[in-house]
Design a protein around this nucleic acid. Structure first.
Lengths: 111, 111
DNA sequence: TTAGGCTATATGCAAAATGCAGATATTAAG
DNA sequence: CTTAATATCTGCATTTTGCATATAGCCTAA
């Protein structure tokens, strides 16, 4: 369907951004908080970094901007993003790759 | 035991190197072949990159050089590496982190 | 025996990514 | 009103990457 091979392996921090958006559309700052929360604070993604990642993901067609569900309750500065079809496939393929690595690690007795 | 928090998240390509060494001591070129094989060719690690990663891992105390098991059968150019205790712990902790991400991806229906 | 391909490690350099700091502005709480 | 939290974005020095290339030992077949 899509040729996503050039994006694999997905960078560790970028995968966290994709996974945040995999759950539901979010704005940049929300992505940052999700990344921190998901890793219990172990991974911190600086804002500068975050927005540059988002710009890159937009350019690559993995993420697209979307209107918020309830505009009136939202801070107007917020820009919402969601995964494109290609972005969803990348999450799927990269998840499978990581699952194999985890399986190897388990087989070797590390976890 | 060790403070490995500064190394998390481990870069995608570096984790592949660590996992190659997690199986058994290998020399640089062997690591490269393992990385390619483990991902069925999807991930290619250039030689320049590989040796710089190894140097960095040595400097960080995650990997250490080791004498080959059977010197006489080996190409004398080869330098063998294995994980240190800290390197092993990093593999363990990072594997657990990745397992959670895969679990999230599964919960969201991506895999 | 030598030519070619694979194995093996390493460096140089331009381009890209990163980390840190800070600019700018809105919202919410006290 | 003042402060803290929210929110997006840019500048710049440093680090990492990608690509090419250097060097050289090993292996096999013409």
């Amino acid at each position: 369907m899509f040729d996503i091979s050039e994006f694999i392996p997905v960078k560790s921090t970028v995968f966290l951004v994709l996974l945040a958006l995999a759950e539901e559309p979010r704005h940049g700052y929300g992505v940052m908080l999700d990344v921190q929360g998901r890793s219990k604070g172990a991974v911190k993604l600086g804002t500068s970094h975050l927005y540059r990642h988002l710009k890159r993901l937009l350019d690559d067609g993995l993420v697209e901007e979307v209107e918020p569900n309830e505009p009136d309750t939202d801070d107007p500065r917020r820009r919402y993003y969601q995964l494109t079809d290609m972005g969803q496939e990348l999450v799927r393929v990269e998840s499978l790759r990581l699952r194999e690595l985890v399986k190897d690690s388990k087989r070797l007795g590390y976890i």
